[in-house]
Amino acid sequence: MVAGSRIVAMGHYQPSRVVTNEDLTKTLDTNDEWIRSRVGIAERRIADTETVADMAGFAAEKALAASGLTAADIDLVIVATCSSIDRCPNVATRVANKLGIAAPAAYDLNTACSGFSYAVGSADHAIRAGAARNAIVIGAEKLSDVTDWSDRKTAVLFGDGAGAAVMTGVPDGEEPGVGPVLWGSAPDKGDVLRIEGWRPYIEQEGQIVFRWATTELAPFAIEACRRAGVDPSELAAFVPHQANTRIIDGIVKRLGLSENAIVAKDLVESGNTSAASVPLALSKLIERREVPSGAPVLLFGFGGGLTYAGQVVRCP
């Protein structure tokens, strides 16, 4: 029997092409000061040739290599994405094929920007139920494919990338490393953030999304901590969805973190990468050894749907 699951290792991938705010001013009526003060982004990475599955695969390869497990050990692959143009085969089986994972349960999940926490929750449940032993969970997006590059309201916001986690079971008697997921949605507000139609572009009512995110989400983040038995003041790091530094600051103000807690602000160099933003930011924190192994970290995603999900995980 397993007591739960834990994250063993993380990996991430970003395309090599950097697009700065200055670059965007060549085609858009915008400027660096405006983007930095309103959103907090300085630059983003944009994929030229890579697909969502390519980026997901690169991130997953790194996570698997760092985990000590092999492809033969993996029996579940979940990819959170809302921007894959290729629908079938799904991204998860494409990734499995690239990595030589022979016969995993493999599915994609779309809850937009909250996708990674939904996927970690789903993998945790599968492992607890005995439906899987070891999982790779990925957030991957190529938002540049669904961005209207002539719309200055949205084109300055998004980027491409992927982050991945390898998860495994924790035997009975040991402390699980993934806390209970707090997940939900506000479907009545769903129409304020859209990627719709046959040639879809991201559209949003920015003020309404901002108000929802800064006023309604902190209690859910606090509840995710409570379910894990961790007080927000005990968190070593907070890794929220990377949409806007002012949203992050607005949530942090209500959380009650300690002064020493790290708050991820990877959007400065990556933009908003939707489902990829949380695993990208977490993977980089781990790579830079900013969070000690075993320390509690609150993941919290929110966005299109409007959906939200979070859980406390122990840093691998």
């Binding site: 309103r38 920015g206 003020q207 309404i208 901002f210 108000r211 800064t214």
Partner: peptide, 27 residues
């Protein structure tokens, strides 16, 4: 006051004056 600060002003005004200012009213 930019559009996001306007939202923060509205939220603070709701608390201070005990009034509801719905999303569609802000504009």
């Amino acid at each position: 006051v930019d559009s996001l600060s306007m939202v923060e002003v509205v939220v603070a005004a709701e608390e201070k004056f005990g009034v509801k200012i719905p999303d569609n009213e802000v504009q």
